[in-house]
């Protein structure tokens, strides 16, 4: 084959390689071994109020999508059944146990968030959102698998407070909870 022809074909070959790589199999989501229900509670601990409250809806929507993609059905837990208990008991172990006892689901997912304002940084208001996500079997809350992480958030306006910080952290929280689900579901599938 003449060299000039090879040179002309090279870009085409490269393009074809790119196109075919798009068809390579991707790593799939870890699926639940069977359809399962999950009691979901996502709480925000305000700094200046005693009462623990719920997180912005956007985060709940994201979590519901995560669960649905893994053959899990989210069961919403009314806030009035956990807010008061979460205010009194501020440990993750207690909260997971409380939700497990208040519901009758295969799994319990508790996401606790705490947003803390740091400083004005280059024109933004920097916050740190600390998150503890716990996933446990509904009948064995003491076996919860826990994931702790902190999300840096830069908000633009002063009136954006803790709920806005948690909302801005939602994409990162979603990704971390997805990993937690995959870890736990992967272990269940292997059993």
């Amino acid at each position: 084959m003449p060299t000039s022809l090879l040179r002309r074909l090279l870009p085409l070959l490269f393009f074809a390689l790119l196109m075919t790589s798009a068809c390579l199999p991707k790593a799939g989501l870890v699926q639940a071994p069977r359809p399962m229900s999950v009691a979901v509670v996502a709480a925000l601990e305000p700094l200046d109020k005693a009462q623990v409250v719920g997180v912005p809806d956007d985060l709940l929507v994201r979590i519901d999508s995560l669960l649905a993609a893994r053959d899990l059905t989210a069961v919403a837990v009314p806030i009035d059944t956990w807010s008061s208990a979460f205010t009194k008991g501020r440990t993750s172990r207690f909260r997971v146990a409380h939700v497990a006892l208040a519901t009758d689901t295969d799994l319990v997912l508790v996401i606790e968030t705490f947003a803390r304002y740091d400083s004005q940084l280059s024109g933004r208001y920097r916050w740190s959102v600390r998150v503890t996500a716990s996933l446990a079997p509904g009948d064995r809350p003491e076996d919860a698998v826990v994931r702790d992480f902190t999300v840096p958030v830069s908000l633009i306006y002063h009136h954006e407070k803790e709920a806005a910080a948690v909302g801005a952290a939602a994409p990162i929280i979603e990704r971390q909870v997805a990993r937690l689900l995959d870890q736990v579901l992967g272990g269940m599938s292997a059993e």
């Binding site: 208990a85 009194k88 008991g89 501020r90 440990t91 993750s92 172990r93 207690f94 146990a97 409380h98 006892l101 606790e112 503890t132 809350p141 003491e142």
Partner: peptide
């Protein structure tokens, strides 16, 4: 169980 955990767990997370 929740009451027990509340007693044995540290006061802050």
């Amino acid at each position: 169980l929740p009451a027990l955990l509340l007693l044995i767990a540290p006061a802050t997370a």
